[in-house]
């Protein structure tokens, strides 16, 4: 038995350790100051896919991402770690998509891929933390979903067994393929790059990355495995009314760089005397003790 697995991945700005230069003076985000990374939980998802590939030889792992051509970076990264190939879904028409418009576009791309058993992605992306795109894709494709997955135990006769970690504990569930699985950050970390795969896929690219370089185009033309798919809205037959801003029911009314109502903070000098006075005060007013 071999499986066709689609890994949903997103290239995200690294919002975890934002430095002081991450916000511009006018309160907008300085994207240039944030490195673009493979969304962490999508790496956990990729690992589950690669484990399945090992369990069921002949399985195929395809990384699917939506974003600018630059997002091919994470498809390559996926290939270095064991994925067979990938697709970047890229079109100006997708700009301004909320989660619903994003899931619409991605589900159109999944339909075009056509032959799939498992669609797997991270639970959520660190730039939005919504955890909505996975279930919305499942709904659009009319298939079941298993969210908060921690481990895919295996597939038997078209039935997958998955361990989920939720607030109240651990649940083991079974469901028939095809389906969508979203993976928690508590799942196994992704394996590192494989030296051979790195060698093999180093020059993999989407067409627009090599548009100005005929030599590279010729090189890739002779090696089809280096060709990362680059699909537009038209190539996945997307209805433009459902894409981008037009297809997004949610609108951003306003974005603020929050200014906290500053309290009159008391500065406590870092001296023995002042620290002891503070502790005594907190004890006296029954805050502690």
């Amino acid at each position: 038995m071999s499986l066709n697995i689609i890994v949903l991945a997103k290239q995200v700005p690294d919002t975890r350790n934002v430095g002081k230069d991450a916000m511009k003076a006018d309160g907008t985000i300085n994207r240039a100051a944030l490195p673009a990374i493979f969304n962490p939980e999508d790496l956990n998802a990729l690992e589950q896919a690669l484990k399945l590939k090992e369990m069921y030889p002949g399985s195929k792992v395809t990384v699917l991402t939506m974003g600018p051509a630059r997002a091919a970076e994470i498809v390559r990264e996926g290939m270095y770690r064991g994925a067979d190939g990938g697709i970047v879904l890229s079109d100006r028409a997708f700009a301004g998509s909320d989660t619903l418009a994003t899931s619409y576009a991605l589900s159109a791309a999944v339909r075009k891929i056509g032959d799939y058993d498992i669609i797997i992605g991270g639970r959520q992306a660190i730039d939005g933390d919504t955890a909505q795109v996975g279930p919305q894709i499942a709904e659009k494709l009319g298939i079941p979903q298993i969210t908060y997955a921690e481990e895919i135990m295996g597939v038997d006769n078209g039935v997958i067994t998955v361990k989920r970690r939720i607030e109240s504990g651990v649940e083991t569930v079974k469901a028939a393929l095809p389906l969508v699985v979203t993976v928690n950050g508590s799942a196994d970390a992704c394996r590192p790059r494989n030296a051979k795969a790195l060698q093999k896929f180093k020059y993999a690219a989407v067409p627009s990355e090599v548009a100005a370089d005929e030599a590279k185009q010729a090189f890739i033309a002779k090696r089809p495995y280096l060709n990362i798919g680059e699909w537009s809205a038209a190539s996945v037959d997307a209805d433009l009314a459902q894409c981008g801003l037009a297809g997004s029911p949610t609108k951003v009314k306003q974005i603020e760089n929050v200014v906290f109502t500053a309290k009159d903070a008391r500065r406590i000098e870092n001296t023995d005397e002042q620290l002891e006075t503070l502790i005594k005060e907190l004890i006296a007013n029954h805050t502690i003790g």
Binding site: R16, T250, K251, K253, Q254, I255, E256, V258
Partner: peptide, 13 residues
């Protein structure tokens, strides 16, 4: 939003 660096007000008109 954005890792908590901004606060957004969202509406569904």
């Amino acid at each position: 939003a954005f890792g908590g660096n901004i606060v957004a007000t969202i509406v569904n008109p």
